[in-house]
Design a protein around this nucleic acid. Structure first.
Lengths: 256, 256
DNA sequence: CAGTGGTCTAGACCACCAA
DNA sequence: TGGTGGTCTAGACCACTGC
């Protein structure tokens, strides 16, 4: 910008933005819009800081601070000398970004989670599922039930609910056959990027239908992990309820 | 610094720092040293950015970036118009910084955790405890066992192990009688600030001695939360093993 | 080598807070 | 009112990457 009025909103390229907030926040918002509009696909590079600075008519430092925040939220990844890239669940250095279950014996290793899809069908949202996914009760949803095995042993029994409209046409074959994390499949096949998630964790006793699937006796303690995943703009896009065996594995968390 | 050699280490005030890293990282290290040396106590303000810039002979922007990182790690808290303050577990806006158990029914509320100390004694480190706390087997440790009750119901049974030398003289009366979080007591009485922690979470079945203390039948599922807390410099200072009831409460976690 | 992100500076001004 | 953190700029140089 030419005139020294850094805090005024109107100086920004896109006049539709009404916010009165720091310039870098507005820039962040604009980049975010391009991100969710799909202007740059997951794994691709976004324009360089200089380009963005020119596009938005602000200094490089301001763009930099905007991207800093996006990087802190794991929406983009910076690579020195190369550029800034849209985050993706594929080719993530940590194979499973949202899975915090690790073997008791040190390193997460490769965890070549074998997937077995038990069920994948269109159904209607229960009241509980509807509330979580911000749908109406009875709206179409896709439900998937599967078992993940580590080192040949069934370890996680998972139920997944997805909004039926967005995930129209998801098949058991896709869920079973794809490479890499399931969230990578969602990116490629449905253009849905899970950006953050909240988990509610409880200890529960295995009940009979599930216990058998995990090769356990009824009553055995299991970790119940209920995960609600969000895309951009805090839109919930997936509800997951996992039952984790924690003999030999544990859920690892870092606090600060 | 006068000459434009920003990346060289020797230009920094304290010549003892050998690192070859960005200037702001070195500054961060120096502030960190003052922090752990107790130059500023928890809750107190650290010098202003301008003062620190003058002390270290760098620009305000460089100090700023150093403090940014410290703030991101929750070691200090910035308050616009007032200053930057050393973090403390007392007067934390979230009463319990490391406790992620919340009631199923929405708001964390006040959670007036009633504490009942069952045991507080000096003993010797088992192999397992010694390994976690980086002591030798048989070294003196203080062990505390207590029950936390929420809304009058015993909910958490906790065993705590602390290095005996640092926590010499910790009494059951202190553990029971202090105001606010236990970590605030540790700051005040022993000058130990817990800065980050790692947790390993498992589902276990309640065994007999513990089940009774939590008013449960043996075999009931419990969340086992093993927490290793660190002070500055990644020195482990506390091992905690909690058994959480998760009927009515859950462990809440955010992923990104 | 050119292009990218990363660091550092110096100076201006803003927003907030307390006396 | 003066001091604090917060924002923004413009320009210089460094470190890494790939051609």
């Amino acid at each position: 910008m030419a005139a020294p009025t850094p805090t005024s909103a109107e100086t920004v390229a896109d006049p539709a933005t009404p916010a009165f907030s720091p310039l870098y926040q507005q820039i962040k918002g604009l980049i975010l819009q391009s991100l969710q509009a799909g202007e740059w696909k997951p794994g691709e590079a976004i324009p360089s800081e200089m380009e963005l600075a020119a596009r938005f008519r602000v200094s490089q430092g301001t763009v930099r601070k905007a991207i800093d925040e996006l990087a802190a939220e794991n929406l983009v990844v910076r690579r020195q000398g190369k550029g800034t890239f849209v985050s993706t669940h594929a080719e993530q250095h940590v194979r499973y970004r949202f899975l915090k279950l690790v073997p008791d014996s040190g390193a997460p290793e490769d965890l070549p989670a074998e997937r077995k899809v038990l069920e994948c069908r269109r159904t209607r949202a229960s009241a509980e599922v509807a509330r979580a996914l911000q749908l109406r009760t009875g709206d179409p949803v896709v439900q998937v039930r599967r078992i993940l095995s580590f080192a040949g042993r069934p370890t996680i029994l998972e139920d997944i609910w997805l909004p039926g409209n967005t995930f129209k046409g998801l098949t058991a074959e896709q869920m079973a056959g794809h490479q890499g994390p399931t969230y990578a499949l969602f990116e490629l096949a449905f253009g849905v990027r899970m950006v953050r998630a909240e988990e509610k964790i409880r200890a529960v006793a295995a009940e009979e239908p599930q216990a058998a699937l995990l090769a356990l006796k009824a009553g055995a303690p299991l970790l119940s992990v209920e995960r609600l995943s969000y895309t951009y703009n805090d839109v919930p896009m997936e509800l997951r309820r996992g039952l984790y065996r924690t003999d030999g594995y544990h859920y690892r968390n870092e606090l600060s």
